[in-house]
Design a protein around this nucleic acid. Sequence first.
RNA 1: GGUACCGUGGCCGAGUGGCUAGGCAGAGGUCUGCAAAACCUCCUACAGCAGUUCGAAUCUGCUCGGUACCUCCA
Length: 502
Amino acid sequence: MSTLKVYNSYSREKEEFVSLVPGHVGMYVCGPTVSGESHLGHARPYVTFDVIYRYLMHLGYKVRYVRNITDAGHFEEEGREAEDKISKKAVIEKLEPMEMVQKYTNLFHWAMQQFNCLPPSIEPTATGHIVEQIGMIEEIIKAGFAYEVKGSVYFDVKKYAESHDYGKLSGRIVEDLLTTTRELEGQDEKQNKTDFALWKAAPPQHIMRWKSPWGEGFPGWHIECSAMSTKYLGKQFDIHGGGMDLLFPHHESEIAQSTICNHVAPVRYWIHNNMITINGRKMGKSYNNVIKLTELFSGDHPILEKAYSPMTVRFFILQTHYRSTLDFSNEALQAAEKGLKRLMEAYEWLKELPVSQLPVSGDGQQTDNELDERCAKLIGELDEFMNDDFNTAKVLANIFELVPVINTIKDKNVSGGGLSVETLKLLQSQMKLYVEDILGLKGETAAEGDKLKSVMDVLISIRKEARARKDWATSDKIRNQLAEAGILLKDEKDGNISWTVK
RNA sequence: GGUACCGUGGCCGAGUGGCUAGGCAGAGGUCUGCAAAACCUCCUACAGCAGUUCGAAUCUGCUCGGUACCUCCA
């Protein structure tokens, strides 16, 4: 079997993945800022890293997956009036800051559950780690790479760059940054434009504030991730993930902070997902094209022609490689919806097939060798594709090639449908592994109540009787009226009747 | 302005030198009381120009077009 290769944003190359501690992986992913509702764009990293998390576990690693909750807020515009994003909106909404934090944290967790994302091993909050952040800042000052001005502390990027390669991750040149960074007001506290805040003095109206050696204030944006990743994963850990837009300045600054404190590069593999765009533009507040997840699920947004289910969105995201941009459109989502439905119907049928009761090959079974080999090949390639930088798009392409094979077995009502029992068993087990365990897809109508099921059994049996005596009027009446109620009946080839809730 | 990246058939999207990606839509067919579904077949593209090569969507150069980051951002 091939070995796992991941694209490392730091080296800009695919590298063989070797964990620091054999059998274990430490993974840190930048989590949400809980000052508002999550939108479609936020779904991408969480789905992407959920699949990576699942796949690493499948490979046998014991993974510690840390994803933070940013509940302390940062400044809206660094250098200008430092305003805590969270406290600012809290005033508008007339909420206690922590009440709002709780509300959006709950909403975020709900959304993650909808997407069938596994919870991380540890989900630390920024406000819960003020002590660690202050400790780290003190160390950076002691090392001579930060300075205090009027109760605020800044990281000295220029000095750091003299002995370290600040800008390597994001492809930036410090000299250029020094000259081209935009002119912002109130930069006078900083020695250089490139410096970033580790701690900001809180103005009097600021609600969220903590005592520190430099007076009352709040932590800078980047320090929380450095503090929490170090605490839970160590001075050096395997994977750090997040959206590409976090490369600069967030992750670049994280490297600088952690390197000064821990004397080692903090991260071995940087993994960044690309953006979701709408009409070719990145989804973001400044573009006014944000679709919140609640709107996406309800269809209540001018851009949306209809509601899209969480699994449709998850599937939509996984059809594209995580490092490509993914363009949202109603057409694309509806295509994903239909494709997913076809996939899941075939898969759920296969899951119930009593493969283990079938006789082994050679017992009068006709095996189509060509088909058998093709299937075995398609199945075998799945690991290769995942090992090649988590290529879920290719995995899904192969799975879709297996769908007609499954449906043929179903239609012909043949035990093996030309496949050897060995291949059939492999097909069943690998489809479960990939569809459910690794890609994390699940049927959305599976959770129908037992009572509905028994009602449907009655209706279906009546309809079968009507059909047997060619009473098409009764037969059609049952089907049509159920269709109006949103339940679709399908007459299968073998005389069975299946149903799905629309 | 600086730095990256991208431009694939009606739509979405894999794919880094030669071999059908895949999904959705569309056309034809099989099956079926009808319908739906399913299955089979077809539609075979790579922004433009020039170059490297036996051979390029894939490498090089230029042109055009687009996006992202440089400020909070997934």
